[in-house]
Nucleic acid binder design. Structure first.
Lengths: 171, 171
DNA sequence: ATAGCCATGTAACCAGTTACATGATTTC
DNA sequence: GAAATCATGTAACTGGTTACATGGCTAT
């Protein structure tokens, strides 16, 4: 199992760059749209990874555009690195849900406090679910099978949280 | 909404210390057992947070035990900080699933590569599910409602991932 | 033309992980 | 009682977040 030398976030950028050169801002927007539901990343990460990827020769800088924006394109060795990453052992995913953590200490708080935490969480996940269903619809229409399938994961996740919230005890 | 001044991991430690004084090692073991399924933390974090919590006056060091182990107990102001944390807006949870990220780039890899990633993931989640069901059984028997309920969340999560893996496309 | 806005990029900070040192306990 | 083991704690690094600076674009 060869080491790709990139972390998952950098690999995601390399993946996105397969569609053509992009600036940091464009990459961020695209990552948010296509991957955000199951792989969060921040603008700052993008802007830090890009020069690092350039140092490794995995991307190349193009001609600067307006607003001092800097387009990057993937290099052949970047494609190889991405391909190595695909074949690596995926990192163990870290599940970290703050609302569940609060629930675990239900005995140390009032039922009301806990119930309102549940209610807020339910609002959030319902909204996320509704948004996702909308975007998946257009993605399926545009024939992007894998992107849509990955969104389906996020849908399943939010549904699972909502289902759990219904059953979670407050006292 | 008052600021508790602690992050979720430190708050979890304060929560555990409500059951009585514990050393770093004991806290780590307990966190792993009770919270690990939905709130991962590492030993190093525990050992870093404890002195920080002591600096803030939220825990107090007791008499050193064997193997230079250091017991900590929660202080009244620590209890208040924990209680403030319970009333804070929970941090937005970050969903980051590496297997789904790979799946999103399904068009850039062979069906076999992707299928074997799915298979490995299914193994992992099946195992996790089986383990959880076992521990929940004993937790319910011991009457720990909230702990058991929180574990149920993790069960739901793994089930959702497994369900998604069954439907996820490889080509 | 200028004031405000907003996208771009940077830098400092914080949290999480990995790798290491130390010394007490067990085992033979 | 020497060697191996294992729990405790530390330190260095990586990755993620938050807060800041800069300057082009837009609207009046």
């Amino acid at each position: 199992m060869p080491e790709s030398g990139v972390n998952a976030t950098a690999a995601a950028l390399l993946g996105l760059l397969h569609d053509g050169p992009m600036t940091g801002g464009q990459l961020m927007a695209e990552a948010d749209r296509r991957l955000g539901a199951y792989w969060s990343m921040t603008r700052s990460q993008v802007y830090r990874e890009l020069p690092a990827l350039a140092d490794m020769g995995y991307v190349r800088m193009g001609k600067p555009g307006p607003r001092s924006s800097q387009p990057y394109s993937i290099t052949p060795s970047g494609r190889r690195a991405f391909s190595r990453w695909l074949n690596e052992e995926p990192a163990r995913e870290a599940v970290r849900n703050p609302v569940v953590l609060r629930a675990a200490f239900g005995n140390l708080q009032t039922p009301n406090t806990l119930a309102s935490a549940y209610a807020e969480a339910a609002d959030y996940h319902s909204q996320a679910l509704a948004d996702l269903r909308e975007t998946v619809k257009t993605m399926k229409r545009d024939g992007d099978t894998f992107t849509a399938a990955a969104q389906e994961f996020a849908i399943g996740y939010h549904k699972a949280v909502l289902a759990w919230l219904k059953t979670a005890p407050t006292k």
